[in-house]
């Protein structure tokens, strides 16, 4: 009889056994779930790429070409650009924000509810990433705005982003129906991906000139914009004089007309 078996009726034996069992279960869970979380977006398995290729053939190839080489319509206009080398980050942004698959022809793709589940988006991203090197999906630590320098983020936002996306992140007009979207409801990951991939007419802000820490600072500033109170009252979309003027002309002058009619009406 081994010493361990001899002590199996010790008062603390049950507690010790319970501790060992809990640690085993917890450790196993942490290993499995942790491993999955890290593996999912980055190191793509062959089955994931195969699923991505299948989804691509069904949902994307009619515009972007059967091998993602880009598609042309019979009259020569481009129906979809080549996706070789755009990277997983571009797919995660375009499909994750519902811009792709394109809902309707127009000056630019409009954001929408995503048409694919997160797993399907990962598979599509893995397939496109397998076609050629491009920016990969950033991991949480890269874009998490926690503890970032908000003041620097504000300076960088005004210098680089505010011209198009507006001082309060409310977006603005460009040329020929194109526009810079409002970014206050965009997730930090999608903001980060937009900066490294330059969707549509947005320029790319490469890591060489806007370091990951700078990007994180910008995201932290945008997060403060999301939660900023309106000390002055109704913000009217924070787009400046356009809505303010419209409200003044319609509601303000309307109220004055009503008051003038009341003043001029004959009393009985």
């Amino acid at each position: 009889m081994t010493p361990l078996l001899a002590r199996r009726r010790h008062p603390l034996a049950t507690a010790a056994l319970l501790l060992v069992a809990l640690m085993a279960v917890g450790g196993l869970y942490a290993a499995v779930s942790g491993g999955r979380a890290q593996a999912a977006p980055q190191s793509a398995s062959t089955t994931q790429i195969d699923l991505g290729r299948k989804l691509y053939s069904e949902g994307c190839s009619s515009c972007h070409g059967l091998n993602a080489e880009g598609g042309q319509q019979p009259d020569g206009t481009i129906s979809g650009p080549s996706l070789i080398g755009v990277g997983a980050a571009a797919v995660d942004f375009q499909v994750g924000t519902g811009r792709m698959p394109l809902q309707a022809n127009g000056p630019q793709a409009a954001p929408n509810l995503p048409s694919y589940t997160p797993d399907e988006i990962s598979a599509l991203a893995a397939y496109v990433a397998s076609l050629g090197p491009g920016p990969s999906i950033p991991d949480t630590g890269t874009y998490d705005p926690k503890d970032a320098d908000v003041v620097l983020g504000g300076q960088l936002f005004r210098s680089n982003c505010g011209a198009c996306h507006n001082f309060a992140g409310s977006g603005g007009a460009l040329t020929f129906g194109k526009r810079a979207p409002a970014i206050v409801n965009t997730t930090p990951r999608h903001i980060y991906e937009a900066m490294i991939t330059g969707p549509a007419n947005m320029p790319i802000f490469p890591d060489g000139t806007l370091r990951p820490a700078d990007k994180r600072a910008i995201i932290a500033y945008v997060e403060t914009l999301k939660n900023a109170p309106n000390p002055g009252g109704l913000d009217l979309g924070r787009v400046g004089p356009v809505t303010e003027g419209l409200l003044f002309w319609v509601v303000g002058i309307g109220a004055l007309v009503v008051a003038a009619v009341w003043i001029g009406a004959k009393a009985r």
């Binding site: 620097l152 960088l156 680089n160 330059g198 802000f205 490469p206 370091r211």
Partner: peptide, 16 residues
């Protein structure tokens, strides 16, 4: 704002 010098290879086509 950040004061880094810039090398040509830092700039991708389409960047600002």
């Amino acid at each position: 704002e950040t004061g880094q010098p810039i090398r040509p290879q830092d700039l991708l086509v389409g960047s600002l």
